[in-house]
Design a protein around this nucleic acid. Sequence first.
RNA 1: CGGGAACUGGCCUAAUGGUAAGGCGUCUGGUUUGGGACCAGAAGAUUGGCGGUUCGAGUCCGCCGUUCCCGACCA
Length: 421
Amino acid sequence: MKLSELHLKTLREAPKDEVSQSTILLLRARFIEKLGAGVYNYLPFGLRTLNKISNIIREEMEKIGAFEVLMASLHPRQKWEITQRWGSFDALFKVQSRSEQEFALGPTHEEIITPLAANFISSYKDLPLYLFQIQTKFRDEPRPKSGILRGREFLMKDLYSFHASAEDLAVFYEKMKKVYVRIFKRLGLRVLITEGSGGTFSAGYSHEFQTPVTSGEDTVLVCPQCSFARNQEVAVKIVNCPRCGAPLEEIKCAEVGNIFQLGHKYSQPFDLVFIDKDGEKKWVEMGCYGIGVSRLLGVIGEVYHDEFGFTWPLAVAPFKYQLITLTSGNPSINKKIKKTAEDLYRALLKNNEEVLYDDRDISAGEKFKDADLIGAPWRLVVSEKALNQGALELKKRNKKTSQLIKLKKFVKILSSKKDNG
RNA sequence: CGGGAACUGGCCUAAUGGUAAGGCGUCUGGUUUGGGACCAGAAGAUUGGCGGUUCGAGUCCGCCGUUCCCGACCA
């Protein structure tokens, strides 16, 4: 992509009223735009990053044999009456059609996936079944917070699992814990696994995945000795680790994922049953597994930034390279610089590299500031200085110093695919 | 939902109750090119909305809206 073709100017100043560092930078770098409290538009760079996150999650879901679906956002009232949550789910957005038919804007999808799964399931031979989606959820939060971290409309991955037995559910549940740890690791995040409260949501057992960030809204009690961690919400007045006795530490965290064993909570009201080996009719055992995708954009930004902008890990960066030209006063040198950059840009594209080419006719300082703000892991500079040595300047976003590399060598490395960042 | 604060061109700010100012950005032209450069010119605001007090309201009062923060709440 060429920056000259995207007429989105970055902001020099933080919008007032915004306190979340990641949200300030996301707004300044024009990754997102605010529409209202907890409601955001995703602009090209933000969407690219969001898609990187989604794709990592999608890959891991498909690896365990889950199939992707996309369910409706308009949920007929009647479905929510079946579980009696039409009246009890406080954050439910309700809308009416012109003929006064009532709908909920989906905040979660048990009411939809459970009857849907009945299309697939009638025998133990049809189990287990894993379905997931990555979709916009709507929740009428009493207080949207910290920009993108708690919104009223947000992107979420939700996986639902269906099992013939509680034992099978438990095994899969443990497997999902490991899958989640792997996903967050790939995203560059440290997570603590805590026992969750479950809320009004599930009858059973649940765990939360918490990433330590100072702006987080949860407080997690962590044992510095063993791996024990528990959300303060459900750990009233615990001071010492119940496992090893060491004094617990309080850490501010953002919840990035959670998993639940639902058991029969939804299969029962929707009469989701199967015939087991013994010929008996049984309730399907269900689990659900969520990851806040758009929240992750904020949390990763919260972890990976400095005073100038983002320092995205390569796995989620909107671009791997930001290519900059520094033109000079001399027209003939200028021409050469532009041609070199243009050739380099094409070589990068040819090798399927993700590159943002800043070909705008603006001052050097402005290009550097924008590159730091947007936060591609590598900055490439084509300048008179480097060109005199037949070289290109290479700088890592999170390093202070840059290095020169011969242009030919760089292109060679590119095409031999030996470069892994 | 309880408490607190705020709302002035696209963004950030200023204006003892006296008729909206500046910076950034944008547009034009020039100049410049290693960290948001410089010069000249231009466009852009019925100060969130409605009502009130006043000779006169961005400023004071009331109601409403929106946003932020603390709390309650929260797959």
